[in-house]
């Protein structure tokens, strides 16, 4: 019995030390609370749309997690709307978009349609994009949020924002 007590005390001491270290020695970091499913109000003006796009870009959409210079995992998007217009004319482009806005939309919902060289998933020879479809998976953007993102990208690229605040028949036809 004496041995048993010794062994039990030793084991408890080891467990206690590990607990002590994890609870009191390392800095306490509390993970963020799960994001609230916010009700997205339909933006009334272009500015509101761009504003919504910026908040989705940095928040719910988690775009800035990878699309930063520090991460280096994905192309930078400062001039995305400008590049989009040139890209669709390039011979290497195999996607279905016919105009810059359509290219951005396609890149969001079907990232593998065209992968910027060097940014493909490893081992896919730039055929498969590591980016998820923003409508599904863990991101789950709706159409309004996607249009807001495109508007935001256009605004930071310095081109005219061609997305109307509410979807018109014309833009629906384009998509």
């Amino acid at each position: 019995m004496n041995n048993f007590l010794k062994v039990a005390a030793f084991s408890l001491a080891v467990i206690g030390l590990y607990t002590f270290y994890s609870v009191w020695v390392i800095p306490p970091i509390n993970p963020e609370a799960p994001p609230k499913e916010a009700v997205v109000e339909e933006p009334a003006t272009v500015d509101e749309l761009v504003e919504l796009g910026e908040s989705v870009y940095n928040g719910k959409g988690a775009c800035s997690l990878c699309h930063t210079a520090a991460a280096g995992r994905a192309p930078l998007l400062e001039r995305a709307a400008v590049i989009a217009g040139q890209r669709i004319k390039e011979p290497g482009y195999k996607g279905n978009a016919t105009h810059a806005e359509g290219y951005l939309y396609e890149s969001l919902v079907n990232p593998s349609a065209y992968v910027v060289p060097g940014f493909g998933a490893s081992g896919s020879a730039d055929k498969v994009s590591p980016m998820p479809d923003v409508r599904g998976s863990s991101i789950g953007l709706n159409e309004t949020e996607i249009r807001a993102i495109i508007a935001y990208l256009q605004s930071i690229s310095g081109v005219e924002v061609t997305i109307a605040p509410a979807p018109t028949e014309e833009t629906k036809a384009k998509e």
């Binding site: 800095p27 520090a70 930078l76």
Partner: peptide, 25 residues
């Protein structure tokens, strides 16, 4: 109290100032 602080955090890609957008890269 003791704290964790990163002295030179990673910068954003873009900064908006003076009515313009600057590309830090």
């Amino acid at each position: 109290p003791v704290e964790l602080r990163s002295a030179h955090p990673a910068p954003p890609a873009m900064v908006k100032a003076y009515g313009k957008t600057f590309d830090l890269a």
